[in-house]
Simulated scan of single mutants.
Amino acid sequence: MECKPTGGVLSPILLILWLLTGAGCLHAIASIICLIRYAGQTDDRPIAYPAVTILKPLHGDEPMLFENLSSVVEQDYPGRITVVFGVGDRTDPAIQTVERLRRAYPERDLRLVIDPRRHGRNGKVSNLINMSRDIDGEIVVLADSDMRVEADYLSRVVGALQQAGVGAVTCLYRGVSLPNLWSRLATGWVDGQFLPNVVLGLSLGLAKPCMGSTIALRRDTLTEIGGFMSFKDHLADDYEIGVAVRRLGLKVAVPAQPVLGHMSAATSLRALLRQELRWNRTIRTVNFGGFVGSVVTHVLPFGILAVLADGLHWRSIALLCLVIGLRMALLFQVKRFVQKDTVELSLFVVRDLLSFAVFLGSFLPGSIDWRGHRLRVRPDGLLTAPDSTGP
């Protein structure tokens, strides 16, 4: 692709590519600044240690599941902790992992709910509804099974929840990869795009996230928003819980710490694309304007296209070098922010090109694949069967 300037004037295509690349450079600089500032937040420690019930909905034998769940059990929180695990099938292999946990931590209050009843189309929420009968703490914490936490996780979350005006707490997360290429690429998306975009959006007041990594709220607040039953048909159930909490006039806090570890379990390109298309379509559904605006985050593909459109001219090559430098600087800042030496740097070019392809693909019509079920998402965020067009 070559778009030569005519009469000293840049072609429209090249001009658009330059503008998008320039906007992407500004976005990268802003993200670096926001990461530095966000990391400077003060930490809120609890003024009391009320009883906590942690809900862990499970489905299948995920990679490193025992280690992820063990990190939740091994908390230094001095208050009473009950951990409730839930599955919807008596043959689910995750049950064996829970029994292994019970043997490893006999002194802990670890409960297992096996209940096949289905409520709505969101399987995770259906599981949570069935698990709700075992909630007995003042504070409820629900978190996805692929999250790994540090021993002070619960104390930090409870401390943030006890601040004035806070109705719920959610947590940022970084990628943790398995030793395979696809898992490393999945980790690159979390670290290189998702995390800095969330921090930038929070810093500028443009994002109001509530993420499945952690949602902590008081039991009374959960009751006031209608319990989990209110979200049984929503794809973005975590986001909708945040919306419901804010409707009560309360804030959803997102502290700088803890930054949790998200286990990226992709083992093939197909699995990676399936997962990321679901994530992208979820974000597009809950915040279409913001999702479209995130096109500027794909600065490297636009920089490469600008070089090709400019006939390998030195000016576009210089701009591409700036883009690469800024992307590297952003990844190094993410590495400092998460305080872990695990941020994927070597694959960022391939990762950025793949992310752009997934971004474009998310606008195509189609269903999503969620734990083996094919579902469609209505414009209001509700899930329906692939052949359903009604309400």
Results as ranks from 00 to 15, higher is better:
residue 2 E to F: 11
residue 2 E to G: 05
residue 3 C to S: 13
residue 3 C to A: 13
residue 10 L to V: 09
residue 13 I to W: 11
residue 14 L to V: 08
residue 14 L to G: 09
residue 22 G to R: 14
residue 22 G to W: 10
residue 24 G to N: 06
residue 27 H to G: 08
residue 40 G to F: 13
residue 45 R to A: 15
residue 50 P to D: 14
residue 58 L to P: 06
residue 63 P to W: 06
residue 65 L to M: 15
residue 70 S to H: 02
residue 71 S to L: 13
residue 72 V to T: 12
residue 73 V to Y: 10
residue 75 Q to A: 15
residue 76 D to F: 07
residue 76 D to A: 12
residue 81 I to D: 00
residue 83 V to S: 09
residue 86 G to H: 08
residue 90 R to C: 08
residue 103 R to N: 02
residue 113 V to P: 10
residue 116 P to N: 09
residue 120 G to W: 07
residue 125 V to M: 14
residue 130 N to L: 05
residue 135 I to Y: 12
residue 138 E to T: 11
residue 140 V to P: 15
residue 145 S to H: 11
residue 148 R to K: 14
residue 155 S to R: 13
residue 156 R to E: 09
residue 159 G to R: 11
residue 166 V to F: 11
residue 167 G to L: 14
residue 180 N to S: 08
residue 182 W to H: 01
residue 188 G to L: 10
residue 197 N to R: 09
residue 200 L to T: 10
residue 200 L to V: 11
residue 202 L to R: 05
residue 202 L to W: 05
residue 202 L to M: 05
residue 205 G to E: 13
residue 210 C to G: 13
residue 222 L to K: 10
residue 225 I to H: 10
residue 226 G to S: 08
residue 231 F to K: 11
residue 241 I to Q: 06
residue 254 V to S: 03
residue 257 Q to C: 02
residue 261 G to N: 03
residue 264 S to Y: 01
residue 266 A to D: 04
residue 277 L to E: 03
residue 281 R to E: 05
residue 285 T to V: 05
residue 292 V to W: 02
residue 299 V to K: 02
residue 308 L to T: 06
residue 312 L to Q: 04
residue 314 W to S: 01
residue 317 I to V: 01
residue 321 C to V: 00
residue 323 V to M: 02
residue 330 L to K: 10
residue 333 Q to S: 04
residue 338 V to H: 06
residue 339 Q to L: 08
residue 341 D to V: 00
residue 341 D to C: 00
residue 342 T to Y: 00
residue 350 V to S: 00
residue 366 G to I: 00
residue 370 W to S: 01
residue 370 W to R: 00
residue 371 R to H: 15
residue 386 P to E: 05
residue 387 D to R: 09
residue 389 T to N: 10
